[in-house]
Design a protein around this nucleic acid. Sequence first.
DNA 1: TATTAGCACTCTTTAGTATTGAGTGCTAAT
DNA 2: ATTAGCACTCAATACTAAAGAGTGCTAATA
Lengths: 344, 344
Amino acid sequence: MGIDGRKLKILQAIIHNYITNAEPVGSRTISKKYDLGVSPATIRNEMSDLEELGFLVQPHTSAGRVPSDRAYRLYVDSLVNKKRIKLVQKRQIKRSLVDGINELEELIQNSAKVLSKLTNYTSLAIAPQLIESRLKHIQLVPIDETKLLMVLVTNSGIVKNTVFNIEKEISNNQLSLISNFLTKKLKGHRIDELGIELKKNLTKEIFELRDVIKDVMPMINKSIDDLEEIDLYSDGVTNIFNFPEYNDITKAKSFLSFLENKENVIDMLLRNKNQDIEITIGKENCYEEIKNCSLITATYRFNGKTIGRVGVIGPTRMAYAKVIPVVKSIAVNLNDILEKHFDL
Amino acid sequence: MGIDGRKLKILQAIIHNYITNAEPVGSRTISKKYDLGVSPATIRNEMSDLEELGFLVQPHTSAGRVPSDRAYRLYVDSLVNKKRIKLVQKRQIKRSLVDGINELEELIQNSAKVLSKLTNYTSLAIAPQLIESRLKHIQLVPIDETKLLMVLVTNSGIVKNTVFNIEKEISNNQLSLISNFLTKKLKGHRIDELGIELKKNLTKEIFELRDVIKDVMPMINKSIDDLEEIDLYSDGVTNIFNFPEYNDITKAKSFLSFLENKENVIDMLLRNKNQDIEITIGKENCYEEIKNCSLITATYRFNGKTIGRVGVIGPTRMAYAKVIPVVKSIAVNLNDILEKHFDL
DNA sequence: TATTAGCACTCTTTAGTATTGAGTGCTAAT
DNA sequence: ATTAGCACTCAATACTAAAGAGTGCTAATA
């Protein structure tokens, strides 16, 4: 028993109906609303087959049927090439994003905002990971006698601060010299290799700076470790309450608690990093708390390297056809903006 | 009809019982659990009086009674001086806070975390406001040909970055000169007056820098405006689901939506800034969405000036006696740490 | 005069029962 | 192969009765 054209049509009709109404779909509904030219009885037979094939699920005997994760998967895969996005939305995305063009983090945060606004789901975004980018400038700034601020600027325009303690005060002049020296030596190196690079270079030093640098270096090394923390943004978290599947308070709680756990969310987002667009449906998700959710994420890149991800999370009954193009478009726009405004 | 000793005792018993059980309290319960030496009938009469006085509310005729906002107010005011905190907690607070001692923002974020962990409510904290602090160091860092990063360090150790565009490239050397110059001129001035100060000083300039500074100045001015944005941290947001009063999904949604609106939350937190500790009960709150919540906030200061607030929000049926000392203690510890580690 | 036992009354909560209705699955006719 | 027809299932809804918690009042009591 294969899944012929008519079965597919019926399945799509059911999915469509369930996505919009969130209620089990019966044979009569399909027969009336979708022009398939067959009677409810025929549809019933087909539905029975579709259930046997694992595409439909019946909550109980006298209810209609609900698409399974597998059905959504089929639906999404059939959908994946038809990227249609409303012109209005396209413009809106473009316009909204350029607002925060100066600071990369603001840009990403903005993306999340736009994403949740356009889709009415919860959006997630992770800011570019330093680890893949290269150093452009390093600057040490005095805070007080015992504290120093280190500012790192990367090729992707990300700025990171770390404060660290020093044993004895260093004069402004010396700081400026060290900054220049470090920038010169470390420029163009990957952030995660700065430590190694620093060690390699340190032996053959300008004599006058040597002592000071020796004091500062371990601290710099330690600060660099701190930099690996990933920034996570979300928006429209309470949108989840708009969906009847979350009227159950324990489900809502479980969903929101999951989102509160930054580490898990980041891990979730970073799976299949290299895929351009990634759609995870229901049980395909690794975390128990979101096994009745779907996740649509897109990668944004810089110079061909994955630097971050944006996406949307919501019930498996998600408006895939509407959401996928929006997520894609956001990613495309991000890529554009990054290329144009954050040069290397 | 005043509120004599016995009435007060009964009222306190009711409040105590309601805070722990979240269910309307009847006369028999009080008589059994609290040793008042009177029969339920007497308690009933007193309760009737207390209701007339506006301290109790009856959900319906055959239910027990529930404390009103007014009752909580009386209770809290009678409580306000008895600050008892468990030694374990006191230590825990101290220990947890020193972890993130280097960066002020981390410190505040940490405070929120500790606060929600110890109280099991939702905690809120706003990071020090720049506006009241003074400049310590200003540094311009090149990002690319058209962009500059400005780093401000204030006396309270806060670091703020702003990126802005410039028309033509400025050499590293010049940047360093400008940075030094600006630091010298502006050091010690209030952040919100930097713009004015800049204008005042600009006319009598080192000749060689004059042109460049003229280019940069309007951008600096603009960036300073951006700095007024206040950082808000929260933690334990999903704790709200632990309270039966939020089993109603619409209530939970309304609460969470309110918290999602950063501006309103900040406004709420900054009312009565100068009060050391501020307790707002139920209808005393200005925002409709939290008129069945109580808010306990404390101010933390630096050199006698209010620079931020931390606090806890939850249902009016809040464990005031437990929460108040914890909030206080956090604030006290913050003050200590600020004084010790963020000198001026 | 203040307290309290006793009791009728109120009103929610819970359980039980009947009814309705949406939807299926099967059978027999087309 | 399709479909009309019909019996059957089961959740949802409405209704009713019973239980239980708590009050307020009255009359007795110390």
